[in-house]
């Protein structure tokens, strides 16, 4: 028996909008720790890892570990029927091949349940090692989205370079090239407007902008984004999901032939 009640249902709506472009089908895993998902895009270049900790739910019942295969486009269709202020409850019985999404309006005057068929998905679970990153950049998520969007009108790839001067996003294309430098800036009115750069050593990596732009679909989840870079690892682009968890996007770099 599974029953997860999320008072801030809009978080789940935003989570689905954040990942459905990148991943078509995925297993949602339920355990005592929380509600999670790990999936790669169809070309195995990017990986998304979602965790919503059990403590973040108003009610969290998961009698045994459960993996539920879902088509994310269909989940998104179901969740779009929930109001932004609705409380969302996920329910599934043991051995059932369906999951039910229950939507309650804040004053309880409308209660809807949508039942969705589950699917069998063969997915590989990857071990993601704890790692030391050469540079970690925390910046406003809207700023990062703007940079990725702007650069993708010039080129297909972005070079992200972190030095003591700041973080530089560069691209080049047929019509020309572009460089955007963001310097550390902590003298702002609100902490979420700060750009904070922690650098152990300089790092410079090249990534496909198409994926970066896809990751920025998570922007509505959080005012800030954290970009962790290491020359030996995929970049991690992380958006917090309120105080209950995160979405982490991993993207393998492009390297010189």
């Amino acid at each position: 028996m599974l029953e997860l009640r999320l008072v801030q249902g809009s978080l789940l709506k935003k989570v689905l909008e954040a990942i459905k472009e990148l991943v078509t089908d995925a297993n949602f895993d339920c355990s005592a720790t929380g509600f999670s998902l790990q999936a790669m895009d169809s070309s195995h270049v990017a990986l998304v890892a979602l965790l919503l900790r059990s403590e973040g739910f108003e009610h969290y019942r998961c009698d045994r570990n459960l993996s539920m295969g879902m088509n994310l486009n269909n989940v998104s269709k179901m969740l779009r029927c929930a109001g932004n202020d609705d409380i969302i409850t996920l329910k599934a019985d043991d051995g059932s091949d369906t999951v039910t999404f229950m939507f309650e309006s804040p004053n309880q005057d409308k209660i809807a349940d949508f039942e969705m068929k589950l699917m069998d998905i063969d997915s590989e679970h990857l071990g993601i090692p704890e790692a030391e990153y050469h540079a970690i950049v925390k910046m406003p998520s809207a700023e990062f989205a703007r940079i990725c969007k702007d650069l993708s009108s010039i080129g297909d790839t972005v070079v992200i370079s972190v030095t003591k001067e700041g973080v530089k996003f560069s691209t080049r294309g047929d019509i020309g090239n572009a460089n955007i430098v963001c310097r550390q800036n902590t003298t702002v009115d609100k902490p979420e407007e700060a750009t904070i750069i922690e650098m152990q050593e300089p790092v410079s990596l090249t990534f496909a902008l198409r994926y970066m732009n896809s990751f920025t679909k998570a922007t509505p989840l959080s005012n800030t984004v954290t970009i962790s870079l290491s020359s030996e690892l995929p970049v991690v682009v992380e958006y917090k999901v309120a105080d209950m968890g995160y979405i982490r996007f991993y993207l393998a770099p492009k390297i010189e032939d």
Partner: peptide, 14 residues
């Protein structure tokens, strides 16, 4: 000429 690396070049199956 850049090669797009894959996630599986870095992370192993559990």
């Amino acid at each position: 000429p850049c090669i797009q690396k894959k996630i599986l070049d870095y992370f192993c199956r559990d």
